[in-house]
Amino acid sequence: MKRIFLIITFLVAAISSFASDIFSPPSVPTLVADNAQVFTDNQRMALANKLSALSRETTTQILVYTTTDLQDYTIADFGQRLGEGWGVGQNGFDNGIVIVYKPKTDSTSGEVTIQTGYGIEPLIPDATCMRIIEREMIPNFRQGLVYEGIVDAVDACASLVQGEFSADNYSGTGEDEDVSVGSIIFFIVCFFLGYVLYAAYGQFTVGRRPSFFSYLWFVLSLIGHSSGGGSSGSSRGFGGYGGGHFGGGGASGRW
């Protein structure tokens, strides 16, 4: 019996680890994911620095992702899912760009896509993405100059979004839960329900009903405790993704 339980646990763990796949963000956020190992260490670092700087200065995030396996997705679909899943760009601005590169092999052609977040679509329309791919990327890729092609495309994208977004006018507002009548009533109800319990408890232990003010004091001290823990974000070069959204805009090419 115990063994069956273990096997089931193992299977569930295996399935869930399979399901939380490439489209969920990596534990260490990065803007250069070179899974196909097409860059040298220096190139990867230079590119990562360039993209982190762009993200810091303009909040626009460009993710460069290389892979040899698109897992049966079309490259455009793969790029969209990646951008949406990792949340490239800022929530609200949706100013993320994803570049996916699949190297050419003997049996398959090379493929590349530029996927634009919703906020980038008006600045870099599909036709412009196509031109960047045809002029900056594919000619370089044909000569084996992967890094040069990617950097040229990144520069082209960066100059097109220049000055559009900035940290100053970014508020980072997501979906704020507005305080509705229902939740206020709910809070009041909980408050008085708590008082009834508190009073009953006091009567049971001490033998007399505690005052309303001692209850108020008790609740306030609880709130004080729970809000004590602050958040401490760790920054490793690049601060992290902002939760941008992607709608499938962009272009793809092959060679």
Binding site: D126, C129, M130, G248, G249, G250
Partner: peptide, 15 residues
């Protein structure tokens, strides 16, 4: 260019 736009639009539809 129209081809690129149409392709992008088909992707948007799927999304």
């Amino acid at each position: 260019e129209l081809q690129a736009q149409l392709e992008g639009t088909e992707n948007r539809i799927a999304v």
